[in-house]
Design a binder for these strands. Structure first.
Lengths: 140, 140
DNA sequence: TAAAAATATGCAACAAAGTTGCATTAATGT
DNA sequence: ACATTAATGCAACTTTGTTGCATATTTTTA
C-alpha cells in the first residue's frame, strides 16, 4: 500500500523532469497517503525516526512540490502551512460557518459547493472554499 | 473626522462594560477608520510616534477587541493576523479565484456572495468568504 | 562506467510574528 | 481620596519558517 504511494510519487516526480530523490519520494508518498492537508510537523511525525530528514530539507521539498504543482499549500488559523497533493483536491466539498465572536467552526453540510461557478475562459476549478462568517446561535 | 471615530470607539468600548483606556480607544479608532482588515504592523505604522504603544500591549488590545466582538481577526497568506471592526463586515462581498500553481488571486466580480445561505436556526450571517481554487488560464 | 556538472541535503545561524511572566501604572467603585 | 481591580511596558521566550554555505547525491557526458 505505502509502496504503491511511493511508486506513484516517484512517477509524479519523474514527470516534472526534476530529480528523483528518496526524500522527495518519501514526502510526496506521505502526502498521497493523506486525504487532508497536513503540516510540516505532522509530516515529520509520519516520517518518524526510520529515515531522518532535516527540518529545512522538508521545508524545501514542500516548497518544491508546490512550485511543481504536485502539492499546494494553504494557510490555517494556527498560522501553519498545510500541504496536500493536488490529486485529492475536491474531496472536501462543503461549506463552513465560522462564528466571528467565539471562533467556533461548524460544517454546513446542506451547502454543496460543487456547483459550477462562472470562471473566466480557460480557468479550471479544482476546489471551492466557502466560509460563511457571522454569529452563531449562542453568540447572536 | 478622526475624533468622530474615537468617540465611536469609546462608546463601543463602554458598551462592553470593559475599561475605557486611551490605548484601546486609539486602536479601535484606527480600525474604525479603516475599511479593510489591517495587521498589527500596519496599525503600529498608523499610530506613529505620537502616542507610543508597546508591541505586546497592541497584541493584547487586539485580542481583547476580538474577544469582546468589537473586531475580528483573519489569517492571511503571509501568516499574519489582520483585524477589522465588525461594523464593516459585509463590505467585501465578492468571490476570489486562487490559482493553486502560481498562487495568483483574482476577484470574481460576477459571483455575488450576498446570497442567503441556509444556516442553522439562530445563526446570523455577516460575511461570506468564497474562494474558488484551481488552475488559471496560464497554468491549466 | 568514471569524472564533471548540476542540484539536493544537512547544519548553524537567523528572522518574523506572536506569547508569557512579572513589576509598574492607570481606571473604576466605594 | 483611597482601595481594588485591570491594563500597560519591558524582557525573555516560543514557534514557524528562511538563508548561507559546505558536503553529499544525482544526472549528464565523455
Amino acid at each position: 500500500m505505502l509502496v504503491n504511494f511511493n511508486e506513484q510519487a516517484e512517477e509524479m516526480i519523474r514527470h516534472t523532469g526534476g530529480r528523483i530523490t528518496s526524500c522527495r519520494v518519501l514526502v510526496l508518498g506521505i502526502l498521497l497517503a493523506e486525504k487532508k492537508a497536513i503540516s510540516h510537523h505532522e509530516i515529520e511525525e509520519r516520517i518518524g525516526d526510520d529515515q531522518p530528514l532535516d527540518r529545512v530539507t522538508l521545508y524545501r521539498i514542500l516548497e518544491w512540490l508546490s512550485k511543481k504543482g504536485l502539492a499546494h499549500k494553504v494557510i490555517s488559523d494556527d498560522r501553519k502551512w498545510r500541504f496536500r497533493t493536488n490529486i485529492y483536491t475536491g474531496s472536501h466539498q462543503h461549506a463552513h460557518f465560522k462564528c466571528s465572536r467565539c471562533t467556533t467552526v461548524i460544517c454546513l453540510s446542506d451547502i454543496k459547493t460543487e456547483y459550477c461557478w462562472p470562471l473566466p475562459p480557460g480557468y479550471r476549478s479544482q476546489e471551492v472554499e466557502l466560509t460563511v462568517k457571522g454569529l452563531c446561535a449562542a453568540c447572536a
